[in-house]
C-alpha cells in the first residue's frame, strides 16, 4: 500500500523544514511568528520520527509523533497565554522587549 522511498530523502526534507523553522525563530521579532516557526520545527521532528517508523514498519514512530503533538499543544496553550500577557504589559509583540532576565 504505502510507498517505498529512501529514508534519506524524508530525513532531508525533515532537516530542511527544521532549519526553515529555525531561520524563522532567528529572524522574526514578532512573537506570533516566532511561535509559528516553533510549530514548524516540532512538526519536522515528528516527520523524522514517522520516517524512522516507516523504515521498520513499526508503530513506535507514530507514538513518538503523538507525544510531540501533546507537547506542541501544551506549549502553544501556555505560549499564547504569555503572548497575551506580553502584549498587555509591554504594549508590543516584540520578543526583545521582554529582556528583563539579562544578567
Amino acid at each position: 500500500m504505502a510507498i517505498e522511498v529512501p529514508v534519506e530523502h524524508v530525513l532531508l526534507v525533515a532537516a530542511a523544514l527544521f532549519l526553515l523553522g529555525l531561520l524563522g525563530v532567528l529572524v522574526r521579532r514578532n512573537i506570533i511568528f516566532l511561535l509559528m516557526s516553533l510549530e514548524v520545527m516540532m512538526n519536522s521532528a515528528g516527520l523524522a520520527f514517522i520516517a524512522a517508523g516507516a523504515k521498520w514498519g513499526a508503530p513506535d514512530g507514530q507514538i513518538m509523533f503523538m507525544l510531540i503533538l501533546a507537547l506542541a499543544a501544551a506549549e502553544v496553550a501556555v505560549a499564547l497565554g504569555l503572548v497575551l500577557q506580553i502584549s498587555r504589559r509591554f504594549d508590543t509583540l516584540d520578543v526583545d522587549a521582554a529582556s528583563e532576565l539579562n544578567g
Partner: peptide
C-alpha cells in the same frame, strides 16, 4: 564573565543553541 552572555534576548539564545 558568564553574565555577559545573559542578554535576555530570546533569539540570541536560540542562535547559540543552533
Amino acid at each position: 564573565i558568564g553574565a555577559l552572555t545573559q542578554t535576555g534576548r530570546l533569539r540570541w539564545y536560540a542562535a547559540n543553541m543552533a
